[in-house]
Design a protein around this nucleic acid. Structure first.
Lengths: 201, 201, 201, 201
DNA sequence: TTATAATCGAGACGGTACGTCCCGTCTTGCG
DNA sequence: CGCAAGACGGGACGTACCGTCTCGATTATAA
């Protein structure tokens, strides 16, 4: 049941050293010259690798960059969970502040934008992204919210996907379009407003 | 207002026919081949125009595409305002449904994604985008919310920017990352959840 | 006879089946795609053989092709001799006509051209060619001429190398450069003219 | 009646400087690294030219090399004629010695072999070669022989093409296959033998 | 009869060059 | 002077092969 297309490369013979050199080179370069100027040619040269070795294992420079991100987030997840002190608002503020900090980190800003660009464009890559990075994270978020639901802090019929979109969508939008200052205060305001709602009471 | 570098092109002599042909060609092509494969060379050929005529008036293919969008939304704004029936929830739902409809329209999806990724990458273009398209739209949204504030439906100290981010951020995120079905129902859920807040009451 | 570099391949263990498959594949391919597009990679694939098996036993694709030719002409020589009816002119015409026929045969034309250009370029190969194919043939030709010398038909001080060059050089040149029709009549004319000389008498 | 294929390059706009730089680079490089290692890439780099500029005007590296040869022999022909002192044998010896000298000149040997290789392989190039270089030369040779015919030195029914093949074919063959020393003496022997014929008299 | 060492197929690897596309600049000739 | 046309030097694309280098899996001596 191992349906492979055409003559598949033999993954057993794959050079782990080359793989790592390529991912590292890709990540470095995208930070240095930006995604638009990132080239397979450049990655290969920096990694000390033949171009064919990249083309053999990745379908596009976006896919390389994606794996570079994946390999960064590898190992550090495991049994990770969002903080749960019982105080939902405080916990969410902490998490969103962390998100803001990451998006603001100059070391990650450029590559992350590049990855976002690629994902917005390439549905196949988007699917991999969703499955391997986004969904696990989202599950953590929903788990925390579900706890709050069980504690009666959130209504039982709340659509958790909508809730997550509300919270992270706002932050992400401000980051991506630079439509305003992206600060801890902003994160706090988003959490507070989302929790209590726009309506006056 | 005269700080132009070198000898500026004389806008009076500019060929309106060429300008329009270029913008149309750009918009069509981005829909056909995607932003990545869109080229100045291709636009010039399709528009029956010399490459120099494009380089004379636009700094990048992103800028051309941007103007193509601008020229689409031209004339149709004017005194536009968001609906105001007094029922804030109903009005917001109508507007967000319209947003969803536009983002879902296959004729606009590809070009819009292209524009978005370009804006995420190019800060200068992002500034023009903010000024010429985003801000006017945002002002309309805030105006409607301010009306509700004055009517006492929303608290006086509500940060309207956060409110807008909450509502449109969620929708935009779902569109850009295809992270779930983008439907009228979703728009409704976003509006309702944002207005009443996540908290159980 | 032991000056081989490194650990010499053990010819006893050599796979005769692979050797033959390689030579056959090389000969076929050069006829199909021409010498310029002939590749070791292609020969290996056609022969169902690893590339290393070729590199182990041959130094270049020219050498492979050369051996392919050698293996063709094997066995058919032995005690061969040129015809000797006593009539020098008739005998030479017969031989040159045969040469013309061979050069004209479409099955041999492409490969033969390939071999010739390779020999013109690679002196080492040229030496092997001279020794293993050209010299034996030339010796047969000179033997026939020497008989004629002994019979008094040719002057004793005639340089037989020059004579052979005159006769076969003309034919070969017309073939290689396609500088005119290569026919039996041409062969006859060459023989007759060379024998009697250009001078009117 | 100017049937051109597809969109022909506009020869009026062609850069003469680039053309010359390319031909010079090609000629130099073929002498330095040999034809096999000659590359379009290398020619472009040496000439300080984009690869496309070569591909725009020439179909193959062989064609470039060919034009490089053409441009060498340009201007120097004009009203050229072979020497005619009345002494056919002396005149032919002089000409064949010159041929030998040229073929022996190390500055020309490699490039000339390369050109020969290419011509033997590519019929289209061979046609151009025949028309632009070989035929004019051959015509000069035949003209000289025709003079001798008119003077009664050569029989009226002598096939001049065969005569030329006999003389130059022998020399050319010895050069191309390095089948023996290529000297003035050899040239003399060829002329003498061809004129008087092999037959003893 | 077994180890043991070389050959074999396969194909990944670091490279070079291919021929193509497009970049952004420059030049030419028309209106 | 703007324009269409398009040649130019250059950079990168994705592909084809180069010659070298492991991998097991056969073989065919030599212990």
């Amino acid at each position: 049941m191992t349906d492979r297309r055409q003559t598949p490369p033999d993954a057993n013979r794959r050079s782990e050293a080359s793989r790592r050199a390529i991912l590292m080179a890709a990540f470095e370069l995208v930070g240095e010259v930006g995604y638009a100027r990132l080239s397979i040619e450049g990655i290969a040269a920096r990694a000390g690798v033949g171009k064919q070795t990249i083309y053999r294992w990745w379908p596009s420079k976006g896919a390389v960059l994606f794996d570079a991100f994946l390999s960064l987030s590898e190992g550090q997840e495991g049994d990770a969970a969002l903080p749960d002190t019982g105080d939902l608002e405080a916990d969410l503020k902490e998490v969103l502040r962390a998100t803001v900090a990451e998006l603001t980190d100059p070391r990650f800003d450029e590559p992350m934008r590049a990855l976002n660009t690629e994902i917005a464009t390439d549905p196949e890559l988007a699917a991999r992204y969703a499955e391997q990075l986004e969904e696990p994270m989202k599950e953590l978020k929903k788990t925390r919210l579900r706890k709050a639901q069980e504690a009666g802090q959130l209504p039982a019929d709340l659509d958790l996907d909508v809730a997550v979109d509300l919270l992270w969508g706002a932050v992400h939008r401000r980051w991506l379009y630079r439509s305003g200052p992206l600060t801890s205060d902003y994160a706090d305001a988003v959490v507070k407003t989302a929790l209590t709602g726009l309506y006056a009471r």
